[in-house]
């Protein structure tokens, strides 16, 4: 389960950026890049790198198979 914050922890976080939870405040305009999206991107990047390794392995396997095929066609053994 996701980490939950206690009320005290929330208060501490808000005050850390100068916010008073009982008052309306004006937020800064700008872009928000949700941190969990970053996390997902990192995980997918790891997966992609691994798959690329796997792809390379398949290509090597393919080269081996084609070489074997050539040998068989020319009278060689498997």
């Amino acid at each position: 389960m996701s980490e939950k914050l206690t009320p005290e922890e929330i208060m501490a976080k808000l005050k850390a950026v100068g916010l008073d939870p009982s008052k309306w405040a004006e937020c800064e305009p700008g872009e928000i890049h949700p941190p969990f999206a970053q996390k997902q991107a990192e995980l997918l990047t790891q997966m992609r790198d691994l798959l690329e390794e796997g792809l390379e392995e398949k290509r090597r396997k393919l080269a081996t198979l084609q070489e074997t095929l050539t040998r068989v066609k020319h009278g060689g053994g498997m």
Binding site: E26, P29, E31, I32
Partner: peptide
């Protein structure tokens, strides 16, 4: 997400 100046 582009957030404009808004009250929160």
């Amino acid at each position: 997400v582009q957030i404009p100046r808004l009250s929160a």
